[in-house]
């Protein structure tokens, strides 16, 4: 129990540190939007996933209010996605973009699998480790498509336009 609590505290701590260190000031809006978008997607997908017992979160922050892991869904993974999204190159060649995507997704899945294996923060029920990998691929891909749509038309995005006028 103590270890789980410490990990949750560490997630908040490293999440905030990560936000400050890895999101440049000029990309704050991009990072914020990616954070919000991923959160909306993971919440929507996790509710049915937990309802149909694909996985469980035995140790969690608000056990009476929800069966979902608040820190992971609400904060930590959205932060990771925001860092991922801000630093991805939209114009590099296809292979480097694909590699970048899959390295991120695989490292996060690995982290998730380790958490599942060695702590009570997560328990996979019907889900296998490769299922979690596919699930995270899906979450990242959907959020990325939505964020790309949002930033697609720069003329419509006022803050971007502002910056262009400045330069």
């Amino acid at each position: 129990m103590l270890m789980e609590r410490l990990i949750l505290v560490a997630m908040w701590l490293f999440g905030f540190v990560g936000l400050f260190l890895f999101i440049p000031r000029k990309d704050r809006r991009k990072g914020f939007l990616a954070f919000l978008m991923f959160q909306a997607v993971i919440w929507l997908c996790d509710i049915p996933a937990f309802k149909y017992d694909l996985l469980r979160a035995p140790v969690r922050e608000l056990p009476k209010a929800t069966d979902l892991p608040l820190t992971i869904d609400y904060f930590f993974y959205p932060v990771l996605f925001a860092i991922y999204y801000v630093h991805r190159r939209s114009k590099g060649n296809l292979w480097s973009r694909i590699t970048y995507f899959f390295v991120w997704v695989s490292v996060i899945s690995l982290f998730d699998i380790v958490i599942e294996r060695y702590t009570d923060l997560l328990e996979y029920e019907f889900l296998k480790w490769y299922g979690m990998w596919m699930y995270i691929v899906f979450l990242f891909y959907v959020s990325q498509v939505c964020c790309n749509w949002f930033f697609k038309d720069k003329a419509l995005f006022q803050a971007e336009r502002w910056e262009m006028n400045e330069n």
Binding site: L36, Q39, W43, L62, K64, A65, L70, Y74
Partner: peptide, 13 residues
């Protein structure tokens, strides 16, 4: 959503 999620869960908790 990020406001209502958190506050909503906390008041129920």
């Amino acid at each position: 959503q990020i406001i209502t999620f958190l506050i909503g869960l906390v008041v129920v908790e």
